[in-house]
Design a protein around this nucleic acid. Structure first.
Length: 483
RNA sequence: GCGGGAAUAGCUCAAUUGGCAGAGCAUUAGCCUUCCAAGCUAAGGGUCGCGGGUUCGACUCCCGUUUCCCGCUCCA
C-alpha cells in the first residue's frame, strides 16, 4: 500500500441519501431539472440518457409481465385528451375543484366544505396571540384548527390541467389533460371486450402520462404534476372482486421482489375505511421505505362497478357484459347482463424509477486497490440502462479496440444495449459502469489474441472469469434472461 | 399556501471586514504496453440562479423573483 495515495474528497459521505441520489442523477445523466437554463420549472424533470433507458426498461418489464405473459390482459394506448364528459362522469371535475381557504390567524389551510359549520353571522370565540377574542363568522364556517373567523378568500384549486381544444380560448372548448389513465380503459371497455373476444375476468392495461396540479410537489420526481402511470383495470364478475384484489396485491408485490427490490423496504398496507377513495371499497398500498419514510409506490383498489355505472348513466350507453352461460337469478334461465367489478393495480412509473434508484444505490467502503470505495447501483440486469460494457484493456492496441467494437455491434444486433469505453485505466472504467448500474463488463486483452477468451467482470461481486469471446453474446443474454 | 434553509465551474464545496473568483474530482489532448477510481504534462470551462437597489467598488449588504431541500398543509 502506498500511503501517499490521495483519498478522493467528494464530500458525498456526509450528504443525506436523497441528495446523493439527486446529485448522481444529474452527474450521470439520469434526471435533469426541466428547463434548467431558464432557472427551471417547478416539479418538471427531464430524463437523460441513462434515465430514459431505466424508465423504458421498467415500463417494458411491466408490460411484458402484465400484458405479454398473460392471456387475460391486453393493452391499449389512449389519447391523453378525452371528452370533458368523461371527467364529469368520473367525478374528477367536481371532486378536483375543492374550495380551499387559509386561516389568517394560524396559517392553516383547509377545505371549506370540511370546516366546522356555524350559522352565518354567529359570534364565536377563538384564541389569537394568546388572548381569547370574539369575532363574527360571516362565512358560515370557522378555521378547523383555531376556530378563527379571519379567513382568506375561498380559492378554487383546479387539480386538473385545463386547456382548449381548438385555436380559440373559450369556455365551450375546454378540455382537460387526463389526471389518470384509468378512465380510457373504462370508456373503451366494450370496444376492447368485443373486438378481442374477451370474457371476464380480463384486464385492460395502459401506460402513459397523467397530469395533476398537486398542491404540494415534493421529493424530487416522487410527486410531480406531470407523471407517468402503469395501470391495469381487471374486469370481473362482482362476486369475484375480493379474490382478485387479493390475487393482484400479491402479484404486484412479488413483481417488485422479482426485480430485486429489498423485501425489508417494501410492505403492503390495507387502507383504513376512512381513507378510501370515493370509488373504492377496498384498497392496498404497496409502500416503499424511501429516505423520508414509508410512502406510496402503487395502489391496488377494488373500484367496484362505480366507474362503469357512472359512464353508463352519463353516456346513456349500455356498458354491461352479457354472459350467455350465467344463470339469471331473476328468471332462472341462462343469460345475464351485468356490470363487471374492477380491480385496479395502479403503479407510478416515474415513482418506480426513483424507488429502483434508491433501492439499488449502495456505497462500499474503501478497500485495498479501491482507496475511495465505490458507488454502485445494483439495478436488476433487466432494468439496467446499459447491460454490458466492452473494454479493450489497452487503447493503443488496434487489434484489441477492433475486436471490442465488433463485440459491441454483436450485442446490438441481439438487442442488448452495450457500451464501448477505451478511456482511462481499467479500474476507473469499471467504477464508471458500477455507478451507472451496468451489471457486466467484458475486457478484451492480449490473452484474447492467444486463446480467444475475454474477461467477464460482474458488477455485484467484482469477480472475474474468462469466457470465450465467441460465446459472450449468448452468455450475457442468458444472464440477463435468467436473472 | 405558510415557516425555515439553500443556490458560486459538469459534481461537491471554498473565497477574511464590501476590494482582480479558487480547490478537489470530472471533462479534453498527450505520456505511461494498464484487470478495479494509479502517476505525470497541458488545456478548456464562471455574466457567482435571475432582476433591481445601495456603494468609488457587490459573490458578499437590501428588495423582489425563480428553483431545490426540510417541516407544516394538501393528497379525489
Amino acid at each position: 500500500m502506498n500511503e501517499t495515495k490521495k483519498t478522493r474528497k467528494t464530500g458525498t459521505e456526509e450528504l443525506p441519501l436523497m441528495q446523493k441520489i439527486v446529485a448522481l442523477c444529474k452527474r450521470r445523466g439520469f434526471v435533469f431539472q426541466s428547463s434548467e437554463i431558464y432557472g427551471g420549472l417547478k416539479s418538471a424533470y427531464d430524463y437523460g440518457p441513462l434515465g430514459a433507458e431505466l424508465k423504458r426498461n421498467i415500463m417494458a418489464e411491466w408490460w411484458r409481465t402484465m400484458v405479454h405473459e398473460r392471456e387475460d390482459v391486453v393493452g391499449i394506448d389512449a389519447s391523453i385528451i378525452m371528452s370533458p364528459k368523461v371527467w364529469e362522469a368520473s367525478g374528477h371535475v367536481s371532486g378536483f375543484a375543492d374550495p380551499l381557504v387559509d386561516c389568517l390567524v394560524c396559517r392553516a389551510r383547509f377545505r371549506a366544505d370540511k370546516a366546522p359549520q356555524v350559522s352565518p353571522g354567529e359570534t364565536v370565540e377563538y384564541r389569537k396571540e394568546g388572548k381569547t377574542i370574539k369575532g363574527v363568522a360571516e362565512r358560515g364556517y370557522v378555521c378547523p384548527e383555531c376556530g378563527a373567523v379571519e379567513l382568506s378568500e375561498e380559492r378554487q384549486f383546479n387539480l386538473m390541467f385545463k386547456t382548449n381544444l381548438g385555436p380559440i380560448d373559450s369556455d365551450d372548448n375546454t378540455v382537460y389533460l387526463r389526471p389518470e389513465t384509468a378512465q380510457a380503459m373504462f370508456v373503451n371497455f366494450l370496444n376492447v371486450q368485443q373486438t378481442y373476444r374477451l370474457k371476464p375476468p380480463f384486464g385492460i392495461a395502459q401506460q402513459g402520462k397523467s397530469f395533476r396540479n398537486e398542491i404540494t410537489v415534493e421529493h424530487f420526481i416522487f410527486r410531480s404534476c406531470e407523471f407517468e402511470q402503469m395501470e391495469m383495470e381487471y374486469f370481473c364478475p362482482p362476486e369475484e372482486a375480493p379474490q382478485w384484489l387479493d390475487y393482484w396485491k400479491d402479484e404486484r408485490f412479488d413483481w417488485y421482489i422479482r426485480l430485486g427490490v429489498k423485501k425489508e423496504n417494501l410492505r403492503l398496507r390495507p387502507h383504513d375505511p376512512d381513507e378510501l377513495a370515493h370509488y373504492a371499497d377496498a384498497c392496498y398500498d404497496i409502500e416503499y421505505r424511501y429516505p423520508w419514510g414509508w410512502d406510496e409506490l402503487e395502489g391496488i383498489a377494488n373500484r367496484t362497478d362505480y366507474d362503469l355505472a357512472q359512464h353508463q348513466a352519463a353516456s346513456g350507453k349500455k356498458l354491461t357484459y352479457f354472459d350467455p352461460q350465467r344463470v339469471n337469478p331473476d328468471t332462472g334461465k341462462p343469460g345475464m347482463h351485468y356490470l363487471p367489478y374492477v380491480v385496479e393495480p395502479a403503479a407510478g412509473a416515474t415513482r418506480a424509477v426513483l424507488m429502483f434508484l434508491v433501492d439499488a444505490y449502495e456505497e462500499e467502503p474503501p478497500s485495498e486497490g479501491r482507496p475511495d470505495g465505490r458507488v454502485v447501483l445494483r439495478l436488476h440486469p433487466r432494468l439496467a440502462p446499459i447491460k454490458v460494457a466492452v473494454l479493450p484493456l489497452v487503447k493503443k492496441d488496434e487489434w484489441l479496440t477492433g475486436k471490442s467494437r465488433e463485440l459491441v455491434k454483436a450485442f446490438w444486433r441481439n438487442s442488448i444495449n452495450a457500451f464501448y469505453d477505451e478511456k482511462d485505466a481499467i479500474g476507473r472504467r469499471y467504477a464508471r459502469q458500477d455507478e451507472a448500474g451496468t451489471p457486466f463488463c467484458i475486457t478484451v486483452d492480449a490473452q484474447t489474441r492467444e486463446d480467444g477468451t475475454v474477461t467477464l467482470r460482474t458488477r455485484d461481486d467484482m469477480q472475474q472469469e474468462r469466457i470465450p469471446l465467441e460465446d459472450a453474446v449468448d452468455i450475457i443474454n442468458r444472464k440477463i434472461r435468467d436473472s
